[in-house]
Amino acid sequence: MRLLHTSDWHLGRSFHRENMIEAQAAFIDHLVAAITAERIDVVCVAGDLYDRALPSVEAVRLFGEALGRIRDTGARAVLTSGNHDSMVRLGYATDLIDASGVHVRSSLEGIGTPVLIEDEHGPVAFYGIPYLEPEIARHHWGLTERGHPAVLGRAMDLVRADLAARPEGTRSVVLAHAFVSGGEPSDSERDISVGGASHVPVSLFDGVDYVALGHLHGRQAITDRVRYSGSPLAYSFSEEHHVKGYWIVDLDASGLAGAAFAEAPVPRPIARISGRIDDLLTGDRWAAYSGHRLQITLTDPVRPAFPMDRLRERFPHALTLDFAPEDPPEEDGRTWAERTADRSETDLVLDFVDWARGAPAGADEERLVRTAFEEIRTREATR
């Protein structure tokens, strides 16, 4: 049996306010083509299908189209909810759509009850473990211990108990959405530490043939059997050097036979660049970044005027701008009160203009500021 392990689609997500739906649709196009080309039997999607519990209309439409196209290839699909998804909403009508070969596992009650899919060697049991909110799952199972290790440990106990009752040699795949110790996070994952310890030991997954993990956005193999596919697209600049894609996993008669990572196309690469504005605007070495989504850090000693407007003439997809002078002025050790003791209100405003713009206010601007304060003082005196 050949599996495709993916996760963290985050349909409907934006990247620094830039809509990603077209890039996500392009990934779905690639995924459907890969399912056919690689002769995939089962697509496993380990959570965070949407980016929020109430997804946009266009995200829901894309998700529905994706499931239909996957089934049109002849492959089956097993999906779980992640911490960005609504467990209840995603679990709606799952009993009905099971008949189509799309199996969404998004409830506490369904943990330990597998989706059984046959190949020439017999059944493979797919156990979907949705993201477990620690306090909700703890009360559901009557646990005294708090945190992710406790609730995910209970979920895996249910999986192993069911597997032990099946014929010897039954192969097993677990889909889970969690932060496993040893994994490398990025800036785009939502913190899941609320409700107890967020990390879980990899040993919790002992006893199954393959574990398809979601939550962390970088691909990684915690062990040969326990892997993160990562997100198919970059959702933060910390993912600048990530290679995006999915795992293709083969099961033979005895279990895991191998796993290989397949890269997905990058619709628009991301990068972080820094330098002085004149060099960024004219230097030949920066020409390669004109089509990137960019985080730019300016190192000019004085903040340039209208920097983002100027930068976007060469880099139309520049999204964020920071200012880190190469030779910053020495820190003034005086308190704020000490530094402003001999400065009038007008002087403070003009100081701010000089700092923010990198150039002092002109004569007309200075006259406007002084006139404004005179009017304020006159108004206060006549009350």
Rank of each mutant, 00 (worst) to 15 (best):
H5A: 13
H10K: 03
R17A: 09
E18M: 06
A26V: 07
H30E: 13
I35E: 06
A37R: 14
E38C: 06
A46D: 11
D48T: 15
E65N: 01
R69A: 15
T73E: 02
G74K: 02
S81T: 15
I97G: 03
I97W: 14
E135W: 02
A137K: 04
H140W: 08
G142L: 08
G147R: 08
V159H: 05
L163S: 09
A164D: 11
R171V: 02
V174S: 03
G183H: 05
G183L: 06
D191R: 12
S198C: 04
V200T: 15
G207C: 04
R219Y: 11
A221T: 03
R227F: 01
S229W: 02
G230D: 01
G230L: 05
L233W: 08
F237V: 11
H241M: 00
H242G: 05
A260N: 06
G275F: 01
D279V: 09
S290N: 02
Q295G: 02
R303C: 09
A305Q: 07
P307W: 07
D309E: 12
R312S: 07
A318E: 01
D322K: 05
F323M: 05
A324Y: 01
G333W: 10
T335Y: 11
T340C: 06
R357G: 08
G362I: 05
E365D: 11
E366M: 02
R367G: 07
E374R: 12
E374D: 11
A381P: 00
